[in-house]
């Protein structure tokens, strides 16, 4: 009954509208996985106006937080696959299956755009007696349990980065939990913790201001924003299997969305992501622009899922084995 009324009303309104243009013919909703003021929110809100220009329609941005992004993911998945509901998210859903957080990940979505990725780094208090990863590892081995590091929850960036390190060398660190890297970096400055692994962009300004120092770069090549810091693969070549790795921001629609809408959206985002203002904002924040869509995006997502899922599983805090979901082990290159 309700559906009947609904379709009648819809037909009426379409019949009444003078122009029945192609997609998009009404506002698009952008569902953001994280809260206002967070990095996902900021990135999405800074690209949206450029996409609006390309599409000629409004994108209404809605924050639907909860369940480390699972609520928003579930919500978008429950909507019609008509291209009018976008999922704007970060890397988290790729870990849902092994962490037991949900059934739906980006494999059930069509990637519109993988906008950018971050690079993990290690920062430490200025007066810490180590200046690079080699010295850090030696210090921790000589003083087990002495060094405090911040943690942002299992499956979060710090847990995966520490798991990577753990796969090469066992370290006894005291892990103090925080709700995010913002509060943890504040705690680093308060002296509550000594070391923190975080994404480059979150710490770069504190480093520039001399409030903390970079001791390690979790990448396989140097980064222009932190000149002189050796990539971690110099000390631990075994890590090159996993790298480059980093949290990312992406836009998705539900699988089954009409081809026409997907292509229009992909085009719009691709053009918007080359906008000079947007690129400046992103590189200033220390993100590496990716602007991937289609197959490239899918293979990036698969690699991320495979690396992170197996690391977390090997470190012992996954609920399910990645093998249960046919996630292959990362190949060594």
């Amino acid at each position: 009954m309700i559906n009947k009324i609904k379709s009648t009303l819809a037909i009426l309104s379409i019949a009444a509208s003078p122009v029945f243009a192609d997609y998009p013919e009404k506002d698009i909703q952008g569902i953001i996985q994280w809260g206002a003021g967070g990095s996902t929110d900021t990135v999405m809100r800074s690209i949206a106006p450029h996409v609006e220009d390309e599409l000629g329609t409004d994108i209404v941005m809605i924050n639907r937080t909860g369940g480390v992004g699972a609520i928003a993911t579930k919500y978008v998945y429950a909507q019609k696959a008509d291209g009018y509901t976008l999922l704007m998210g970060a890397e988290n859903p790729q870990m849902y299956k092994v962490l037991g957080l949900g059934e739906i990940d980006y494999g059930d979505m069509v990637p519109i755009s993988i906008l950018a990725r971050g690079t993990p780094i290690f920062v430490a208090q200025n007066d810490a007696p180590y200046n690079n990863m080699r010295e850090f590892v030696e210090y921790v081995q000589q003083n087990p349990g002495e060094v405090r590091t911040g943690m942002t929850g299992n499956g979060g960036l710090t847990s995966i980065v520490l798991a990577m390190l753990d796969s090469q060398v066992k370290l006894d660190l005291t892990r103090v939990p925080y709700n995010g890297d913002g509060p943890a970096l504040t705690a680093l400055q308060s002296g509550t913790i000594d070391v923190m692994s975080t994404v480059l962009g979150a710490a770069i300004d504190h480093v520039r201001a001399g409030r903390m120092k970079v001791i390690g770069l979790m990448d396989n090549s140097e980064n222009a924003l932190v000149p002189g810091v050796e990539p971690i693969t110099e000390d631990f070549p075994g890590l090159s299997n996993y790298l480059p790795w980093g949290p990312f921001f992406g836009v998705f629609v539900k699988q089954g969305t009409p081809e026409e809408a997907v292509i229009k959206l992909q085009d719009a985002f691709r053009k918007a992501a080359t906008n000079e203002d947007f690129v400046n904002i992103m590189t200033n924040r220390g993100y590496t622009m990716m602007n991937l869509s289609g197959d490239e995006a899918s293979s990036f997502l698969d690699k991320y899922k495979s690396v992170s899922s197996w690391l977390v599983y090997d470190a012992g805090y996954a609920k399910h084995s990645p093998a249960d979901f046919d996630i292959p082990r990362p190949e060594s290159n």
């Binding site: 206002a36 900021t42 809100r45 300004d205 504190h206 201001a209 904002i281 200033n284």
Partner: peptide, 15 residues
């Protein structure tokens, strides 16, 4: 506010 400053091209950090 910090996000807003970023979007407008400023770096609202310790500097």
């Amino acid at each position: 506010f910090i996000g807003a400053l970023f979007i407008h091209g400023l770096n609202p950090g310790p500097l």
